[in-house]
């Protein structure tokens, strides 16, 4: 039957184009495609490794920065504590000084007041003496109008002086 007998002509026309296609594709197409895919796979593999390395690097940098931050925090706390301490000290000293100053001022004020007081008293005394002398003068002027009373007076004064 014709269906099952291969035609010589078609055998020829099949063989030649197929061999040509095979030659062309084997030389120019398949190596390019297979190598291209391989190259891309290699690139992907390398990229994955590089990405993992970058990730590790990043983690390390992050750990470093965390350590630095921690250190800074500790130092900051120490500095703050120091500052608080020295502030307290300064306040203490200042308070002491202020107290001393205050007592000093108070003492001098008191002295001043005493001086003033004495001064005032002295002045008052003087005023009082003058006043009593004036009064005595007036009293004496009235009482010594009579001779007898003058004599009495003189006597009494003399007695007093003697007694005194």
């Amino acid at each position: 039957m014709e269906l099952f007998t291969p035609e010589v002509g078609l055998l020829f026309w099949m063989l030649i184009p197929f061999l040509v296609v095979f030659y062309v594709l084997a030389k120019y197409a398949w190596p390019a495609i297979l190598k291209g895919v391989e190259k891309r796979n290699q690139f992907i593999d390398e990229s994955l490794i590089a990405a993992r390395q970058a990730k590790d690097e990043l983690a390390r940098v992050k750990a470093d920065s965390d350590a630095i931050l921690e250190q800074a925090r500790i130092e900051q706390a120490a500095i703050l504590a120091e500052a608080a301490k020295s502030r307290d000290k300064i306040l203490e000293v200042a308070k002491d000084k202020a107290g001393e100053e205050a007592t000093k001022i108070i003492a001098s004020a008191r002295e001043q007041i005493n001086l003033e007081k004495e001064d005032a008293i002295r002045q008052i005394r003087r005023e009082v003496a003058i006043l009593s002398v004036d009064i005595a003068e007036k009293v004496l002027r009235d009482n010594l109008n009579e001779k007898e009373s003058q004599m009495n007076m003189i006597d009494r004064l003399l007695d007093e002086i003697n007694l005194g």
Binding site: V21, Y28, A29, K35
Partner: peptide
């Protein structure tokens, strides 16, 4: 079919040659 196959495959191969990545 042969010509079509060669054209298709060579054009694809050319793209790989240009930039395989």
């Amino acid at each position: 079919a042969s010509i079509a196959l060669i054209i298709i495959m060579l054009s694809i191969a050319a793209q790989y040659k240009k930039d395989p990545i």
